[in-house]
Design a protein around this nucleic acid. Sequence first.
DNA 1: TTGTTTATTGTACAGCGTTCAGCTAAATTG
DNA 2: CAATTTAGCTGAACGCTGTACAATAAACAA
Lengths: 193, 193
Amino acid sequence: MGEARTPGQRAGLTRESVLQAAHKLLIERGLDGLSMRGLATRLGVAPNAIYSHVANKTALVDELLDEVLAAVVVPDPDTTEANAGLVRIMTSSYTVLLDHPDLVPLYLARQGARGPHAQRLGDVMFALLAQAGVTGPAAHEARRVLIVYTIGFAALSTSAGPEPSEDRPLGSAELSGNFASGLQWLLTGILGA
Amino acid sequence: MGEARTPGQRAGLTRESVLQAAHKLLIERGLDGLSMRGLATRLGVAPNAIYSHVANKTALVDELLDEVLAAVVVPDPDTTEANAGLVRIMTSSYTVLLDHPDLVPLYLARQGARGPHAQRLGDVMFALLAQAGVTGPAAHEARRVLIVYTIGFAALSTSAGPEPSEDRPLGSAELSGNFASGLQWLLTGILGA
DNA sequence: TTGTTTATTGTACAGCGTTCAGCTAAATTG
DNA sequence: CAATTTAGCTGAACGCTGTACAATAAACAA
């Protein structure tokens, strides 16, 4: 650990290494544990060094949010039937979101990430809807509803629910079932019975 | 303004006056503008004086969240038909949430507030569902879905949507329509066609 | 009146995100 | 290859945050 750097010497950071370290830190310490200073320490670097690779903390988190969405499994809209495809994509999104509980409130606060991966998901959803004959404003409406529902449900699932003692802690299997039910109701309404 | 207080002298704060000032500050300055120090300044008091009336900032915000829900109009479950009643209560909730955009992400992060007003809403929803024959686990499931959908949609509505340039900024009337559509789909699924 | 509880202040701590100036290694240019 | 520019990094600092601790004075109880 005797690697004391003096001004001018480089640490070899990349945008990628910064994002990756931030991702790990987020998983280990949660959102509250993700500070620029903590990240800098983790990287063995002065706090402000990060600003050479990322504009600010907000931008960093934004990219993190989009990066997580890379794990969502996206069906091919040409070979998949609309209802089934949408169930798959939303369920996969839901699962991925559950893997990152601390991020979920952020998705909602920023309303769903804006990066390339989010774009990809949106495009596929759009294609699936079009395949089922849902286009134009109705498609936008439907997509919005599905996204909100999915993120929202993930938010509700990522901690003790609002009922403190009313019934048992409510296992994750049960929540997944709830999610699937509501999702199917929505899809039935969107695609027509 | 020459009212300099020395240690021991009282400012006459109450829990209510603190909460009320916090509420006003929140409306005027948004969530970022609501700091313990700013609130103290507003109250003409040292920052730590607030801690005599509220445990900490988290507790303060929690009570604020619940207080806002007091404005939700709740129909009488005995004289209101289930579908109509649920539409009314969810729409009113949605409207109230839209009046407090900065709070909405917090509702999601904390998953819907836990205070007495939230309890009241939950009870009425439960009664309406029961009236339509939805009871037991199905009722919990339905209520959860409706709450998530409503808060989630409010989150989506309280700022520029995820589509940057794709179409026009999407007016609030349009969003309300979207909300109503999705809500009706959910209710149809919940209550049966 | 005396004693106890409680609201308030002053002070302080540890942490945060971020900016600025300086240094120097690396990249670019001639 | 040498000169010059660019860019990654450090050190220091600013202003902000929530909150704990000890001292003080007002309110209340006996």
